[in-house]
């Protein structure tokens, strides 16, 4: 299931502006990799290049290679729609489909992609909601609209929706930044469980969170506003937070930044 991501020489642009410059890294399967760094350094942009969501933005353009096991996501003839089925994504703000019930939200990926039998669909919905630790809270009101849940529940609903299509990789763009500490804890526990099955990449502004949930941490930085963001270093989380090899990383983590 889980696959390795191997990025080499990746540049991403918004029109003529280069947002990230020459990034190379490897993300191991069945691990949690955290991206940290100041705002505007291109973490989210880089994350979005990993499932070809970057090009959805008008003017968005990518150069370089992203290998998912042995396939280049940006190779000739690759369909971005199939890429996104392999590499799922959870967004910063919970965004359940407002016209759909809880059940339909989870089943959305399957329903909109192809058809499955009702009984199979029920199984997938139950499995995904259990996987997102939401089943017990919503099992009696699957027919109710998803927007009626609390923020933390909505975010777990979005995670259930993302894992229902059985991707190989799960990208999370600051999944807890709109949530309270209790809901954040629920999501962090969930990430710990999900890494048994998926390769997980998470962007976060919360250094403690990166230290808690991730196995490896990548630090991004930018030289100045208007300059492209760069990968400063990537290493085991323990090393990054105890003994990073670059001074800038230590400054950022210890709060002596800028």
């Amino acid at each position: 299931m889980a696959k390795r991501i191997d990025v080499s020489g990746l540049n991403a642009y918004y029109g003529s502006f280069r947002a990230i410059e020459d990034i190379s890294m490897t993300v191991e399967p069945r691990t949690v990799t955290a991206f940290i760094g100041p705002s505007g350094c291109g973490k989210s942009t880089f994350l979005r290049t990993l499932n070809r969501m970057h090009e959805v933005t008008p003017g968005g353009r990518v150069e370089g290679k992203v290998m998912l096991d042995d396939e280049d996501l940006y190779g000739a003839g690759v369909d971005p729609v199939s890429v996104r089925r392999e590499v799922g994504m959870v967004f910063q703000r919970p965004n359940p489909f407002p016209t759909m019930s809880i059940y339909d939200n989870v089943a959305a990926g399957l329903k909109l992609v192809g058809s499955k039998k009702k009984s199979e669909m029920d199984d997938v919905v139950e499995k995904s909601l259990k996987g997102a630790n939401l089943w017990n809270e919503v099992k009696d009101r699957l027919g109710k609209p998803g927007s009626g849940l609390s923020g933390g529940q909505q975010q777990r609903l979005c995670i259930a929706r993302a894992i229902a299509v059985e991707p190989n990789v799960l990208l999370m763009d600051e999944p807890c930044s709109a949530l309270d500490p209790i809901s954040t804890l629920a999501i962090e526990d969930l990430i710990g469980e999900l890494k048994e099955r998926f390769t997980i990449v998470i962007v976060t502004h919360n250094m403690q969170q990166a230290a808690r949930v991730s196995d490896r941490t990548a630090f991004f930085n930018l030289a100045a506003v208007g300059q492209p963001g760069k990968l400063i270093e990537i290493d085991d989380t323990e090393r990054i937070f105890s003994n990073p090899s670059v001074q800038a990383t230590e400054d950022y983590i210890s709060g002596r930044f800028g």
Partner: peptide, 17 residues
Amino acid sequence: PNELREASLALGVPKWR
């Protein structure tokens, strides 16, 4: 909201659907 379009695209749903 654009977020809804992105959420759907990120599930691997084609644009027309």
